[in-house]
Amino acid sequence: MTPSAPGDDGRDPRTDAELVAAHVAGDPDAFGEVVRRHRDRLWAVALRTTGDREEAADAVQDALVSALRAADRFRGDSAVTTWLHRIVVNACLDRARRRAVRPTRPLEEEVGPGGDDSVRTGAALAVVPDQTPSVQTRLDVTGALARLPEAQRAALVLVDMYDVPVAEAAEILGVAVGTVKSRCSRGRSALAEILGAAGNR
């Protein structure tokens, strides 16, 4: 993630940090420009982290409204994108925790004919190694991802899916670098096991 994304194609040339400062100073359009620059990535991260479209939409909305209101507390110690990702990921994890208390079906799942809900669209389908990942395999891995504990899922989403540097992911998640590595490693291992078991079924 780059700290700023000034455009040379007619977009606002200011850096993210300059836009946030302008927003705090009263520029009514500045925060919207920051959001437009990063909303697709924030959306993708939220969608993968929550595994649910509506939850992701609500989490991104809540997070960005909070960021808009609390922008004066952004000190510039980290990149604006890191700050926004931190707020969005925390909103997703917060929702996941609340959902764990009041469980709902997190994904659009299909229960097997015998009522075996392990036969789900996504996680229970086979992985075919040694091939370019097919559309079906990509669905498998994202379905399997949704079965991991949210902390592991968030680490994998940031580091393995979106190439966020480990140190930055640690900052976003508020944990040590070693913890991010550990979560990623365990998450990959768990995913391999889920997908392997499904492939052998």
Binding site: V127, V141, L145, D160, M161, K181, S182, R186
Partner: peptide, 24 residues
């Protein structure tokens, strides 16, 4: 150990990584 495995993942886990990237 997990942190070490992060830097040099075994083949199945490297494959998972590739799948995740492809999905992204």
């Amino acid at each position: 150990d997990d942190a070490a495995a992060f830097d040099a993942p075994p083949a199945p886990e490297q494959h998972v990584r590739d799948l995740l990237r492809a999905a992204a």
